[in-house]
């Protein structure tokens, strides 16, 4: 691999890792508080992308489109929590997992009916589609925007969870839900906040994914959520910093595998990714940043 190719792939990997990170944060947040692996999170991403598609088709400016898509997915996330998950709070993990798969499948099929299976071209603004050449390295503006947006949102999230009362309550609940309730923390408030934040990040991730891939379709949420799941497992499930680290590791692993592998093997990149996951879990079952905490009540 030449130096310029390496540099190009570096930015590309940062971009992919950033999207995984935005999705993984939402998964990790909800898991930390509810012990729920929310596979329907991928459909929130998908719906965010479609919301953006339709708002853009209505001729709105792109920033307004993003804002409206975020608001739409927040509403969807809260509705999902209220309808599907609130009633089974504290149920065995398997019941939670199956419910989230059911929600995921229901939303996928609803989207197939509503939007049609035919992929739609994503209306990425022309300014973002350009390529820059810096010192012989071609850099796509989409990747730069993706990385910038992700870093900005992660910085804001860090401020929120460390500096605000609700953020502190969320960290406390993720660590020890029983003790948090004894502090007078309203569990529902914390859960709603986790779904709202996770859904907003998923909408942004869906839009960035649309811009990256160029088209959107109803089943597009599955791969990102699966990858985000792997990222959170690598990082230590429930740990937000762990999820981010895992997401970037995964992004880099994938991009460089494709770049380094001979052409006929690059189609197997996901197989390599999951093989790496198995190896990591063999040596560090709690993930990279995870701690082996006792079971929660």
């Amino acid at each position: 691999m030449s130096a310029s190719e390496f540099g190009q792939q570096f930015v590309n990997a940062l971009g992919l890792g950033s999207i995984y990170a935005l999705v993984a944060i939402g998964l990790a947040m909800v898991f930390g508080i509810l012990r729920l692996i929310n596979f329907a999170h991928g459909e929130v991403l998908m719906l965010g992308a479609f919301a953006a598609y339709y708002f853009a088709a209505a001729g709105l400016p792109f920033l307004v489109v993003v804002l409206l898509a975020v608001l739409t997915t927040v509403a969807i996330g809260l509705l999902m929590e209220r309808v599907a998950y609130r009633g089974i709070r504290g149920a065995p993990d398997v019941a939670l997992l199956l419910t989230s798969l059911a929600v995921s499948i229901a939303l996928q099929n609803g989207a197939l009916l509503a939007f049609d299976a035919q992929p739609k071209p994503f209306p990425t603004p022309a300014a973002i589609q350009e390529q820059l050449t810096v010192g012989g390295i071609q850099i796509s503006v989409t990747n730069l925007v993706t990385v910038g947006v992700a870093l900005l949102l992660m910085a804001l999230l860090t401020l929120f969870v460390t500096r605000t009362r609700l953020g502190t309550a969320m960290r406390a609940t993720a660590e020890n839900a029983m003790a948090a309730q004894l502090m007078g923390i309203n569990l529902s408030t914390v859960i709603v906040a986790a779904f709202a934040i996770g859904s907003a990040l998923a909408a942004v991730a869906g839009i960035l994914w649309g811009a990256r891939v160029g088209r959107i379709e109803p089943l597009m949420g599955f791969i990102p959520v699966l990858k985000a799941f792997v990222a959170t497992v690598i990082g230590g499930f429930g740990s937000i910093p762990g999820a981010v680290v895992g997401a970037y590791l995964l992004g880099f692993g994938e991009i460089y595998l494709v770049a380094l592998l001979p052409g006929e093997l690059s189609g197997y990149r996901d197989a390599f990714v999951f093989a790496a996951l198995i190896v990591i879990l063999l040596f560090r079952p709690q993930g990279i940043l995870g701690s082996s905490e006792p079971e929660k009540i």
Binding site: R171, A172, E175, N176, M178, A179, A180, G184, N186
Partner: peptide
Amino acid sequence: APHRIVAAGISQSPEGRQIFGSLTVRE
């Protein structure tokens, strides 16, 4: 709900202390 009971004036120091280990003493 538990948070309403705390708000009503009953607070508990639970068995095993249940400190938030990753949070500061002030938090």
